[in-house]
C-alpha cells in the first residue's frame, strides 16, 4: 500500500533512501525543477503511510505531429520497496496522463540494454523495443557488459490515439541508430 501523489520540489529533501542506491542518479536541482515547471503532471511519488518516500517517476511530453508522445526520463524504487508493483502503478499513471491530458501517440523510455530486469518489466507492461541507440549511456564501469552497458533500447507502447500501432515495430532490436540521431 502506498500513497500516489504529485512530486513536489521539497521532495528533494526526502529522497535519500531512494537516491543513495547506486542505480539512481542525483541530478542538480535544476533538473527536477525543469521537469516540475513544465510537466508536473508527469512526475509523481509513491510514499509509505509513514511519509517515507518509496519511489518516483519523472517524465515529459515532447515530439511533433505523430511523434508527439510521453517520455519516461527516470523511474526508480528504493531497494526495500521493490516487487510491490510500485513501478507498474507509476507507469500506469504516466500512460494515463499521456493518453488523456497530452493526447500523445505513445509512451517511450530508454533503458540500458544490459538492464534485463527493467527490459522484461517493460515488456510485461506492453512495451517493445523500437530501436537500439548506440553509446547512449556513459560506461558504468562494471566490466563485462560491453556494448550492452552503453547502448540503450528505446522502448515504446502505443496509446489510444495510435490504434493502428504505427509507433511500434516488430524488429526494433535490429534498428540501430547513433546517439546524435535521437534527442
Amino acid at each position: 500500500m502506498s500513497v500516489l501523489r504529485p512530486f513536489k520540489a521539497t521532495d528533494m529533501f526526502k529522497f535519500n533512501n531512494i537516491n543513495l542506491d547506486i542505480w539512481t542518479e542525483t541530478y542538480g536541482i535544476g533538473f527536477y525543477l525543469n521537469y516540475l515547471s513544465r510537466w508536473p503532471d508527469l512526475c509523481c511519488v509513491q510514499e509509505a503511510p509513514s511519509g517515507r518516500m518509496m519511489g518516483y517517476v519523472i517524465g515529459k511530453a515532447e515530439g511533433v505531429s505523430t511523434e508527439w508522445h510521453g517520455h519516461v526520463t527516470a523511474i526508480t524504487v528504493a531497494p526495500e520497496y521493490r516487487r510491490l508493483s510500485l513501478a507498474r502503478k507509476m507507469m500506469r499513471l504516466v500512460e494515463m496522463v499521456t493518453d488523456e491530458i497530452y493526447k500523445g501517440f505513445f509512451v517511450d523510455l530508454y533503458v540500458r540494454c544490459a538492464n534485463t530486469v527493467a527490459i522484461e518489466m517493460y515488456e510485461g507492461m506492453g512495451y517493445s523495443v523500437y530501436r537500439r541507440v548506440r553509446e547512449y549511456y556513459g560506461n558504468l564501469g562494471l566490466g563485462k557488459g560491453g556494448r550492452d552497458e552503453e547502448d540503450a533500447f528505446d522502448m515504446r507502447k502505443p496509446m489510444s490515439r495510435d490504434p493502428n500501432r504505427r509507433s511500434v515495430r516488430a524488429n526494433g532490436r535490429d534498428m540501430i541508430v547513433s546517439a546524435h540521431d535521437v534527442s
Binding site: 513536489k8 520540489a9 521539497t10 525543477l33 525543469n34 516540475l36 515547471s37 513544465r38 508536473p40
Partner: peptide, 18 residues
Amino acid sequence: DFVVRAFTAEKYSQIPEF
C-alpha cells in the same frame, strides 16, 4: 529561473512549492 519558467508555462501549482 524555474519560478519564472513556471510562470511562463502557467504551472501555478508548482510556484509556491518552488
